[in-house]
Amino acid sequence: MGNVLEVRSLSKSFGGIRAVRDVSFDLKRGEFLALIGPNGAGKTTCFNMLNGYLRPDTGSVKLLGRELVGIPPRKVWRMGVGRTFQITETFRSMTVLENVQMALISHNRRIFDLFSKATALYRDEALKLLELIGMAAQADRPCAELAYGDLKQLELAIALAHDPDLLLMDEPTAGMAPNERIALMQLTADIVARGHVSVIFTEHDMDVVFAHSHRILVLNRGELIAEGTGDEIRANALVQEVYLGGGSLFHEKETAHA
């Protein structure tokens, strides 16, 4: 299968500091790709260049052959890129269902409709999406009442509303309990397994990264320092040194138990 995304020599500097240097990679359809690295390695900068929030100094990002650089985020979304946020961004004064409906209303280009009742539009489609992520029972709850984990899940439903080719998830499990993390990423993996959507995610929880990703990219000081499967990355000495740590944490734990 062909590449959904082709990233070529992406670079970005902030006031003389090179946050991202010459990053290139490809993403196949149906691939689940993790982007990891220490804080400040340039993951978020990289991400924001993929979804249009930042304009790279140099380089190109092609989605199914179409250039994304220089296109504002809202248009990147229309071209088929969905995203979830590290800190959830939802419409807190609306219900769960309404949140998904808004994405559908926008997708169908009806946001300037002055007369229809918004809550009556695309109800069934929105409910189907909520069923897909297992939140149909909470459809009518106000968003502001939801637990954090549920909000993260809702974001996934919103991001899938326009049937994207590419889904970008920035630290999708940050702030969730361990089993919620597993459930959310399992859900995402199931959706990826259907073969249509490709996912790139950043993550600090290595269990999540190693459990689900097909391939892992490691960034350090703005540069891609490693790329490979979970086993390859775990065995990579450079990655261990800059990011995974010498394992002293786990070592101490063992001595503490002994």
């Binding site: 809202r74 248009k75 979304w77 946020f85 997708h107 509303a161």
Partner: peptide, 8 residues
């Protein structure tokens, strides 16, 4: 941010 992220 969310509104922009759904194409608005």
């Amino acid at each position: 941010i969310r509104a922009e992220a759904i194409g608005v």
